[in-house]
Simulated scan of single mutants.
Amino acid sequence: MTELSQQQQTEFEAAAFRTLVEHLRKRSDVQNIDLMNLAGFCRNCLSNWYKDAADAAGVGLSKEEAREIIYGMPYEEWRAKHQNEASETQKAAFETNKPAH
Protein backbone atom coordinates (compact mmCIF):
# COMPACT_ATOMS: atom_id res chain seq x y z
CA MET A 1 0.00 0.00 0.00
CA THR A 2 1.23 3.49 -0.86
CA GLU A 3 2.32 5.47 2.16
CA LEU A 4 0.47 8.78 2.34
CA SER A 5 1.50 11.78 4.35
CA GLN A 6 -1.05 13.16 6.80
CA GLN A 7 -1.41 16.19 4.51
CA GLN A 8 -2.08 13.97 1.47
CA GLN A 9 -4.61 11.90 3.39
CA THR A 10 -6.44 15.04 4.53
CA GLU A 11 -6.42 16.51 1.01
CA PHE A 12 -7.70 13.28 -0.56
CA GLU A 13 -10.42 12.88 2.08
CA ALA A 14 -11.50 16.47 1.49
CA ALA A 15 -11.59 15.92 -2.28
CA ALA A 16 -13.66 12.74 -1.86
CA PHE A 17 -16.05 14.59 0.46
CA ARG A 18 -16.46 17.46 -2.01
CA THR A 19 -17.18 14.94 -4.77
CA LEU A 20 -19.79 13.20 -2.60
CA VAL A 21 -21.49 16.50 -1.76
CA GLU A 22 -21.53 17.57 -5.43
CA HIS A 23 -22.94 14.19 -6.42
CA LEU A 24 -25.73 14.50 -3.84
CA ARG A 25 -26.51 18.02 -5.06
CA LYS A 26 -26.86 16.73 -8.62
CA ARG A 27 -29.00 13.78 -7.48
CA SER A 28 -31.77 15.79 -5.87
CA ASP A 29 -34.12 13.08 -7.13
CA VAL A 30 -32.73 10.81 -4.42
CA GLN A 31 -34.69 11.61 -1.28
CA ASN A 32 -33.06 11.76 2.14
CA ILE A 33 -35.35 9.02 3.43
CA ASP A 34 -34.10 6.74 0.64
CA LEU A 35 -30.50 7.46 1.62
CA MET A 36 -31.33 6.77 5.27
CA ASN A 37 -33.10 3.53 4.44
CA LEU A 38 -30.33 2.25 2.18
CA ALA A 39 -27.15 3.72 3.61
CA GLY A 40 -27.99 4.81 7.15
CA PHE A 41 -27.14 8.47 6.52
CA CYS A 42 -28.44 11.39 4.48
CA ARG A 43 -27.62 14.97 3.59
CA ASN A 44 -28.74 16.13 7.02
CA CYS A 45 -26.37 13.67 8.66
CA LEU A 46 -23.51 15.06 6.55
CA SER A 47 -24.39 18.60 7.57
CA ASN A 48 -24.53 17.54 11.23
CA TRP A 49 -21.12 15.89 10.97
CA TYR A 50 -19.77 19.01 9.25
CA LYS A 51 -21.12 21.16 12.10
CA ASP A 52 -19.65 18.76 14.67
CA ALA A 53 -16.23 19.15 13.04
CA ALA A 54 -16.58 22.94 13.07
CA ASP A 55 -17.64 22.85 16.72
CA ALA A 56 -14.65 20.66 17.60
CA ALA A 57 -12.39 23.23 15.92
CA GLY A 58 -14.01 26.08 17.85
CA VAL A 59 -15.75 27.52 14.79
CA GLY A 60 -19.26 28.77 15.45
CA LEU A 61 -21.21 27.33 12.54
CA SER A 62 -24.99 27.17 12.83
CA LYS A 63 -27.05 24.13 11.83
CA GLU A 64 -28.58 26.20 9.02
CA GLU A 65 -25.15 27.30 7.74
CA ALA A 66 -23.90 23.70 7.74
CA ARG A 67 -26.97 22.55 5.84
CA GLU A 68 -26.52 25.29 3.25
CA ILE A 69 -22.93 24.13 2.72
CA ILE A 70 -24.11 20.58 2.05
CA TYR A 71 -27.28 21.36 0.09
CA GLY A 72 -25.79 24.24 -1.91
CA MET A 73 -28.75 26.44 -0.95
CA PRO A 74 -30.83 27.15 2.15
CA TYR A 75 -32.40 23.92 3.43
CA GLU A 76 -35.98 25.19 3.19
CA GLU A 77 -35.41 26.18 -0.42
CA TRP A 78 -34.05 22.69 -1.21
CA ARG A 79 -37.03 21.09 0.51
CA ALA A 80 -39.49 23.23 -1.47
CA LYS A 81 -37.77 22.38 -4.76
CA HIS A 82 -36.89 18.73 -4.27
CA GLN A 83 -38.40 16.98 -1.27
CA ASN A 84 -41.41 14.75 -1.77
CA GLU A 85 -43.75 13.37 0.87
CA ALA A 86 -42.42 10.02 2.05
CA SER A 87 -44.57 7.01 1.22
CA GLU A 88 -45.91 4.72 3.91
CA THR A 89 -43.45 2.08 2.73
CA GLN A 90 -40.52 4.51 3.07
CA LYS A 91 -41.69 5.57 6.53
CA ALA A 92 -42.06 1.96 7.68
CA ALA A 93 -38.60 1.09 6.39
CA PHE A 94 -37.16 4.09 8.19
CA GLU A 95 -38.73 3.05 11.48
CA THR A 96 -37.30 -0.44 11.07
CA ASN A 97 -33.81 0.63 9.98
CA LYS A 98 -33.22 4.09 11.44
CA PRO A 99 -29.66 4.53 12.64
CA ALA A 100 -28.85 5.47 16.21
CA HIS A 101 -26.73 8.48 15.26
Rank of each mutant, 00 (worst) to 15 (best):
N32I: 11
N48C: 06
Y75R: 07
K51D: 02
K91E: 08
L61R: 01
A16S: 09
N32C: 11
R43Q: 09
A39N: 09
G72N: 02
H82M: 14
L35Y: 02
K51E: 06
D29T: 15
K63M: 08
A93H: 03
K51W: 06
A53N: 12
A93V: 05
I69L: 08
R27L: 13
Q31M: 08
T2C: 05
E68D: 11
E65S: 06
E88S: 13
L35F: 03
Q7K: 14
P74H: 10
R79C: 12
E22W: 05
T19K: 10
A100P: 03
Q31H: 09
V59L: 11
A39D: 07
Q31C: 08
D34M: 08
M73F: 04
A93E: 03
E95P: 04
Q9V: 12
D29L: 11
K26G: 08
V59P: 00
G72D: 01
V30I: 13
L46F: 02
G60S: 13
K63L: 13
E64H: 02
I33C: 03
A57C: 11
Y71M: 14
W78G: 01
H23N: 14
A14F: 08
R27K: 14
I70G: 00
Y71G: 02
F94Q: 04
T2M: 05
S87A: 10
D34R: 06
R27F: 05
M36W: 01
N97V: 15
L61S: 01
D52G: 09
R27A: 11
R79V: 15
A14N: 12
R79T: 14
Q83M: 15
S28A: 15
S87T: 14
Y50K: 07
A80P: 01
K26V: 10
F94G: 02
Q90H: 04
I33H: 02
Q83T: 15
